[in-house]
Every structure is written in structure tokens, then in C-alpha cells.
Write a protein that binds this DNA or RNA. Structure first.
Length: 479
RNA sequence: GCUCCUAUCGUCUAGCCCGGUCUAGGACACCGCCUUUUCACGGCGGUAACAGGGGUUCGAAUCCCCUUGGGAGUACCA
């Protein structure tokens, strides 16, 4: 039987990086075993679910390169893939369980429920679970109240058993009999509840593996009970460790940028995000750390998940982004740079060969594409910010001499209509100053640098100068 | 409170299942050196960890128990 794995987000917000990580693991597991990866939208919470979020999530998944074989819009033979379009299925099965005596209508009001919870809290050592007062109400009696229009929910009849299952990452997990009471499967609004829909869909969609974050671990108990009541075979569960923030709490909005959209907006590379996220809780069999998603599909090993929570560290993400940036080809880099540069940036005026040259040269110096703009200033901005060192170099007598010489040379070049100095001309300048003017060492290089770039440090001069437009040089020299 | 999960450098982790090869390996960050007459890149090196206590064993990071710490869940959210 083919492996089938699903990612089932609820569209109540933007795609969270934790969600992206789970989706990626699902995708990887499915693909590693030649199976299918399915996207299912869990939108039974009508209050909070929004169509825009669903669209945005799908778009972000696409951006990450996590492609699903079946899902909303795309279709597939197990559809529909939106829970809001499968409501009749859940309701029918809920009532089927009622008929079989495995669930029952409950008429407890909200106030009565609250009172019970308070009482449980007051009695220390007691689990805050509810054991149904209506579970033994005669079916005819219940029907009478329903017909009379009394508000009700359907609760699952829990038999207080111990459940054990084998989790792919946790190993054997056991839940004691007092963990939950008779929980709701159908709300008073007639809407089914997450744990119920989830089981039905995973069953009907023939999922072989359920991969999700550890926060869902306690839900597994309820789900196991539902599988049993339905007479369905549970899938293999795999509860992946949680992503946490610097306070060691579950990663959430207050930890800063936590949605894929935010990283996308900041022009992070999807490959970098995938790569970093993948290594948070999973390790490469050969301990490789920089890779593309496609490359690890053949080696993706389900036994290499780490059990403990992983701290999300943006500094390391930045490192991965830098590494993946350096993996890009010249033309790819130029495209990325062009995306983030202002419309009127002079870099755009360069021909593509020169653009590539510049891109490949400066990529060493940045972690994010957005940092290129500032790096490019050394080429395109006449006057850069001064500092103490610049002032000191300026004060040297030799620096003035160098300036006068360079000025005269640039004037000659300009008279010839030259657009940019070549690396040869730069070498000539260097040779002349050294031999004829007898300036060498620090005064030579620092002096030249300050004269040519108005800065005391920066990229290799002999690379930079041929790329600097003559107009900028002219400006810097005060011609 | 109750239930479940979890514990190796500051962080991500390898090693644990199948005890000796672990004076615990790699990566990020940090520091130093080399390279570059600068910066960055790169190369080399350094600081830095088996939570604590009991067992079992000739031998434990690895197996067992307890303690402590951390986390999650505890909904008519997902």
C-alpha cells in the first residue's frame, strides 16, 4: 500500500513557520517513500477561518516548493479537501455512533458545565474531566427533548480505558484512563469538532501516517477512541518536537516574525528557510547541513527525529540564507537583486555581464539579498559616511599627493571619453604611485582607498574601481 | 491541580536502540591566528556540554529507578 501523508492546517492565520516545518516533513516522508502528500483544510471553526488565509497558505507553500498531490482546487479522488465541504459525512457518522450507543446527546447548559469545572478545580487531585450526566438518558427521552427544541451537543461515550500506541518519534506512549471525560464531537451549532473530523478524514482519505507537532500528542487519545468506535485502523503517528522561542515557550507571534509570509516579504530564500527548518529536530544521516530539499528526499530517514523541543534562532537562519545565496548562479543572483533594488537604482543601467560580475563579487559580503543595496553604495554613491579613520588618512600628506595624481589621470581618461577605469589602469596608477612617488604600504593603499571610495575599508580596490562609474569617481575627486 | 512529553556545549545537533573505539564529534554564535597591505570570504585553532542522585556492570552519555528543571495539553479552538 502506498504511503499517504497529509498536512492539515486550519486557515485561521498566516502559515506559521512551525506549520511550514511540519508540512515539509510530511512532504519529505511521503516523497521518500514514493507516496502521496495531501493538503486538507480544516475549517470547521467558522468564526476564525478565512478564505484569504487559505489562499495565502497555499501560496506560501508553493513559494517554499512544497507541492501536494491532492488538495483543494487541485482535487483528487478523496475529495473534497475542505472540511467545511464534508460536514454531512461527519454528522452522519456522529449520529451513527449515537445509534450504536457509542455517543449520546447531552443537554448540559454552559452554566452547569462551568459549575462542574469549578468544582473539579476546587477538589484538588481531581482531573478536570467531565463524566457525562446524560450518558444513560433513555434514547426516547433524549429524542423528546431534541424535538422540543432543547439545545444539545453530542458527546462521545468514553470507557475509561488505557490506550497505548507506538509513536514514530516518541516510541511507546501510554494514556491512563482518567485523562479525558465524555468529550464533545458535535457542537450545539451542529458543527463537528476537530478531533472527530480529523479522524474521519484521515480514515476516509486513507492516510497511512499522521505527522504533526507534539502539541497534538494529547489529542491522540481522543482520536484513538474514535478510531476504535468507528472500527477503523489508526494510522502511524509521528509527533514531531515543538519549535520554541528564546523563553523556551512554544513559538508564537510575540517571538517576532513567525509567519512564512514575513520571511518572504523580507526576501529570505525559500531554500534557506526549508534547510534551516528541516534541521530543527531532524539530522542528516551524514551530518550534512547545507542542502536542497530535493537532495534529501532519498536519504530522509524517519528515525532521525529529535525528541526535544528546538529553539528557533534567526541568527542561524541568516547563516543558511547566506550559504544558499552563495549557491545561486550569477543570473539568478541578479534577478534577486533587481527585485529588491529601487526603480531608479543606477545598478539597473549596467549591462547584464557587469551586473553579474557585481553580484558575484558582493555576494560574499551579505546574508540577505536586501543587504546588497548598501553594499552597492561603494560603487554608486559619491560620498560615503566618514569616520575617524577616514579623517586620519585624509590628514596624511601622501593622501593629498595621491589625490592630485589620480585626479589628473581621471581627467585624461575622461578626455578620452572612457566610461570606467579598467583593472589595467588601476594597476598603472598603483605602479606609478609606488615607483615614481615613492609611496608604499599603508599610506599607499589606505590613501588610494580613501581617495577613490571615500572610505577607509571595503572590497578589493582593483575589483571595485573598474566597476565604479566614471561620474562617481569624478564626483569623489572633486572634478 | 491532573495527564502526557522531554533533558549532550549559549543555540541546533551527532553519539544512546546494539554499554568499552567518547580525554564526547560537527554546525551557528563568540574569541584568536593565517590569508587578504583594508573589510568580507576562506583556512586553521580556541572557549564551551553528557541536569543531579542512586543503582546494574569489570566498565554507563549510552540500561534501570528517583529527584529536579523545562514544555505541552487540560474547550461546544485547531
Amino acid at each position: 500500500m502506498s504511503v499517504r501523508v497529509r498536512f492539515a492546517p486550519s486557515p485561521t492565520g498566516l502559515l506559521h513557520i512551525g506549520g511550514a516545518r511540519t508540512a515539509m516533513y510530511c512532504y519529505l516522508i511521503a516523497k521518500a517513500q514514493g507516496g502521496q502528500f495531501v493538503l486538507r483544510i480544516e475549517d470547521t471553526d467558522l468564526e476564525r477561518s478565512k478564505k484569504e488565509y487559505e489562499e495565502k497558505m497555499i501560496d506560501d507553500l508553493k513559494w517554499l516548493g512544497i507541492v501536494y498531490d491532492e488538495g483543494p482546487e487541485k482535487g483528487g479522488k478523496f475529495g473534497p479537501y475542505r472540511q467545511s465541504e464534508r460536514l454531512d459525512l461527519y454528522k452522519d457518522l456522529a449520529w451513527k455512533l449515537v445509534k450504536e450507543g457509542k455517543a449520546y446527546p447531552c443537554f448540559l447548559t454552559k452554566e452547569e458545565l462551568d459549575a462542574l469545572t469549578e468544582k473539579a478545580i476546587a477538589e484538588k487531585n481531581a482531573p478536570h474531566t467531565y463524566h457525562g450526566q446524560y450518558r444513560d438518558l433513555a434514547p426516547e427521552e433524549a429524542q423528546k427533548r431534541i424535538d422540543a427544541g432543547d439545545e444539545f451537543v453530542i458527546r462521545f461515550k468514553n470507557h475509561q480505558k488505557t490506550y497505548t500506541f507506538n509513536d514514530l518519534v516518541r516510541g511507546e506512549v501510554t494514556f491512563g484512563p482518567d485523562m479525558v471525560g465524555d468529550f464533545v464531537i458535535l457542537r450545539s451549532t451542529g458543527m463537528p469538532v476537530y478531533n472527530f473530523c480529523c479522524v474521519i478524514d484521515d480514515w476516509k482519505m486513507e492516510m497511512t501516517h499522521v505527522i504533526r507537532a507534539e502539541e497534538h500528542l494529547p489529542n491522540t487519545l481522543r482520536q484513538l477512541m474514535i478510531y476504535e468506535a468507528l472500527g477503523a485502523e489508526p494510522p502511524i503517528f509521528c509527533h514531531v518536537s515543538l519549535l520554541i522561542g528564546h523563553d523556551r515557550q512554544k513559538l508564537s507571534k510575540r517571538h517576532g516574525a513567525t509567519s512564512v509570509t514575513q520571511y518572504r516579504d523580507q526576501h529570505y530564500l525559500p531554500q534557506a528557510l526549508n534547510n534551516y527548518l528541516c534541521l530543527l529536530g531532524w539530522s542528516h544521516p551524514e551530518e550534512r547541513d547545507i542542502f536542497q530539499l530535493e537532495d534529501i528526499i532519498p536519504v530522509f530517514d524517519l528515525n532521525r527525529f529529535n525528541k526535544s523541543a528546538a529553539l528557533y534562532d534567526i541568527q542561524k537562519l541568516n547563516f543558511f540564507n547566506q550559504q544558499h545565496l552563495k549557491l545561486k548562479s550569477g543570473p539568478e543572483l541578479v534577478t534577486h537583486i533587481l527585485e529588491v533594488l529601487p526603480k531608479d537604482h543606477p545598478f539597473r543601467a549596467f549591462d547584464s555581464a557587469k551586473q553579474e560580475k557585481v553580484a558575484l563579487f558582493f555576494v560574499e559580503k551579505v546574508q540577505l539579498v536586501t543587504e546588497f543595496e548598501q553594499q552597492l553604495d561603494v560603487l554608486f554613491k559619491a560620498q560615503l559616511e566618514s569616520n575617524e579613520e577616514v579623517a586620519e588618512v585624509e590628514s596624511w600628506e601622501t593622501t593629498g599627493l595621491i589625490r592630485d595624481y589620480i585626479k589628473s589621470q581621471v581627467e585624461v581618461l575622461m578626455a578620452d571619453g572612457v566610461q570606467n577605469a579598467s583593472s589595467d589602469t588601476f594597476n598603472e596608477w598603483l605602479g606609478y604611485i609606488k615607483k615614481e612617488m615613492k609611496i608604499k604600504g599603508k599610506p599607499l593603499f589606505k590613501g588610494l582607498r580613501v581617495v577613490l571610495t571615500t572610505q577607509a575599508e571595503g572590497p578589493d580596490l582593483k575589483e571595485i574601481i573598474p566597476l565604479t562609474p566614471m561620474a562617481i569617481l569624478k564626483d569623489r575627486l572633486g572634478i
